[in-house]
């Protein structure tokens, strides 16, 4: 069974980048509820840069992810963008030298990314951020080793995380200052992650 390769990552980038054509506006709208309304623009810029980055020269998955992390480092200074980069570096470190990564490793890799993002950003699980959705996907895909099942479970878990956090207040970042107002609306970072997971699951 084929695992995750540089080619898989390249395809994922293209799917995500294509999805941004319609997602950008939705994320900007979500962010403008309590933030400055630029999450969609930022993510679009980063994924556009990923799309322009030739990762095919990397012999292994780790190298390709590090190339993408460097592209992000040059493209955005936003907190979400930097956390994204942190996740790529963390997974890149774990997959260095691996031409193919078994799908069964995905859950552990997401967990490693999660830990690095928590350490870097200072948020905790339950704060209503992108971390909660990543955690849900990592849990749901634990012990699953084929791509099709991972896609189904990841997509479902991401949707459920979004729904379950909608009614909760935001506890970190600028939105925490408007905790009451944050109840009933989506965290833009979490929303972006969920929509992209859905797109990747559908387009695999």
């Amino acid at each position: 069974m084929t695992g995750i390769t540089v080619h898989t990552i390249r395809n994922a980038v293209e799917i995500a980048n294509t999805r941004m054509a319609t997602l950008e506006e939705e994320l900007n709208r979500a962010d403008s509820q309590l933030g400055d309304g630029d999450t969609g623009v930022m993510l679009s810029r980063v994924l556009g840069k990923f799309s322009e980055t030739d990762i095919s020269t990397s012999p292994d998955v780790g190298g390709a992810l590090q190339m993408l992390a460097r592209a992000a480092a040059a493209t955005t200074g936003s907190s979400l963008g930097t956390l994204f980069m942190t996740a790529l570096l963390a997974i890149g470190k774990k997959t260095k030298g691996m031409a193919s990564v078994p799908w069964s490793d995905l859950s552990d890799l997401l967990q490693a990314a999660l830990e690095a993002m928590i350490q870097r950003g200072g948020a905790s699980l339950g704060d209503k951020t992108v971390l909660d959705a990543i955690h849900a996907v990592a849990m749901a895909t634990q012990g699953v080793d084929d791509q099709a099942h991972i896609a189904t479970k990841a997509s479902h878990a991401a949707d459920q995380a979004l729904i379950s956090f909608q009614g909760k207040p935001c506890k970190i970042g600028r939105a925490r200052m408007f905790a009451d107002k944050s109840i009933g609306i989506d965290d833009p970072g979490m929303l972006g992650f969920v929509r992209l997971v859905n797109a990747l699951a559908a387009g695999r």
Partner: peptide, 12 residues
């Protein structure tokens, strides 16, 4: 220096 109201990126 970053974009308006957005921190500078790591590379900068």
């Amino acid at each position: 220096i970053g974009n308006v109201f957005e921190g500078p990126n790591v590379e900068s």
